[in-house]
Amino acid sequence: MKIHYAHHPDDVKNYTTEKLRNEFLMETVFKENEVELAYSHVDRIIYGGAMPVEKALTLDAGKELAAEYFLERREMGVINIGGDGVIVLDGEEYEINNREGIYIGRGTKEVVFKSNEANQPAKFYINSCPAHKTYPTVKVDLEKAIARPLGEDAAMNKRTIHQFIHPDVLDSCQLSMGMTVLEEGSGWNTMPAHTHERRMEVYFYFNMEEDTRVFHLMGQPHETRHIVMSNEQAVLSPSWSIHSGIGTRNYTFIWGMCGENQDFDDMDHVAMKDLR
């Protein structure tokens, strides 16, 4: 598990491209038969992926959490972007197929990931953050998620936001999570940009062609930077940073947030004229 310490925006101004990518980009989220995770000191979020192929994968706490088991003091959200699979929680099996998700409450001791077929393995994308209370585990598919169509063809940002883990869908301590699908011909996400000082965010880009790239924008509004991203990569966004992107073709991304509140519309909007 790679550890990411907090970053002051004045320091980030001086980062090289290589340093910026090393500190904020998770280049490899999925490895066959492994659980790949990153731990950020920004609101203590953990994010990454589990890709079981020939064997089931068990989620262990590791020394980084100093806990008996991974969800002893945490909650977790998972969305499957691969083949059909199963998540076993304390012996109970949940079928989590492509573009289905699940919220897992604090106190779940055993978490096991399995694929139904090795030649079409599941790819379980994971977000986890500290939890102060135990809420029930809930499976969420696209029908249960809240769909919010946004954007327009003329602005190249026609998209649908699917809110999987959201106060109007289920109870969680602080984790919010969802998936945004851009339509063909659209490339912009979250522009005009915003920040939200009260919570951080992680973007995971996928459903991209081999030669498609997303130019992910970050940094303070008056001091922006960019990271060039390819398929199935994740990027960390501190609360002081904008988080937006433009793709060479349409794509899909999963967003996850944790922090002070769960008000999805609590945003500090940035006027286009103020971006630098």
Rank of each mutant, 00 (worst) to 15 (best):
A66T: 01
T134C: 08
P136S: 03
Y125L: 10
K158T: 15
I96C: 11
T160Q: 14
E92H: 09
F164Q: 13
Q120C: 06
S40F: 02
E72P: 03
A154S: 11
G151H: 09
L89Q: 11
A67Y: 02
P130W: 04
E92V: 13
E100M: 04
I104D: 04
A122N: 04
K139Y: 10
E100F: 07
I102T: 00
A155N: 12
S115T: 09
A38V: 15
V88K: 11
Y94L: 15
A131G: 00
R99D: 15
M76I: 06
Y103A: 04
T58I: 02
G107Y: 10
A66R: 09
T108Q: 02
M51A: 09
R44Y: 13
G82L: 07
R159T: 14
A56C: 05
K63D: 14
A154H: 07
I46M: 04
A66N: 05
Y47N: 05
D43C: 00
N97V: 04
Y103G: 02
I87L: 14
D153E: 15
Y135V: 09
G91H: 12
V138C: 08
H132E: 09
G85K: 06
N116I: 03
N80R: 14
D84Q: 12
H132A: 06
V78G: 06
Y94S: 13
E54Q: 02
V78H: 13
I146G: 09
S128K: 06
D141P: 10
I104C: 02
G77N: 06
G101M: 07
I46Y: 04
R106P: 01
G107W: 01
F124K: 03
R106I: 01
G62Y: 05
L57W: 04
C129P: 01
V78F: 00
S128Y: 03
N119C: 03
G48V: 11
N98I: 04
D60M: 05
I102A: 10
F113I: 06
A67F: 13
S128Q: 06
I146A: 13
R148V: 13
G151F: 03
I102M: 05
A147E: 15
L142A: 15
A61F: 01
I87M: 09
G77D: 04
G82I: 11
K133S: 07
L59G: 04
E54F: 08
V112R: 00
I102W: 07
P136V: 15
Q163K: 15
R99L: 13
L142H: 10
H132R: 00
A61S: 05
E34T: 07
E75R: 08
A131W: 01
R44E: 06
N80I: 12
K114W: 00
N116Q: 07
L57D: 07
G49Y: 05
L37S: 12
K158G: 07
K109Q: 13
I87C: 08
M51W: 00
I161F: 13
M51K: 11
Y69P: 11
A38K: 06
G83L: 13
F124M: 04
G151E: 14
G62R: 10
E72H: 01
P52N: 05
E93F: 08
K55D: 03
V35H: 09
G83R: 12
I45G: 07
E72Q: 08
E75L: 11
K109P: 00
R44K: 05
K139M: 11
D60I: 08
L89H: 03
L71G: 00
E110N: 02
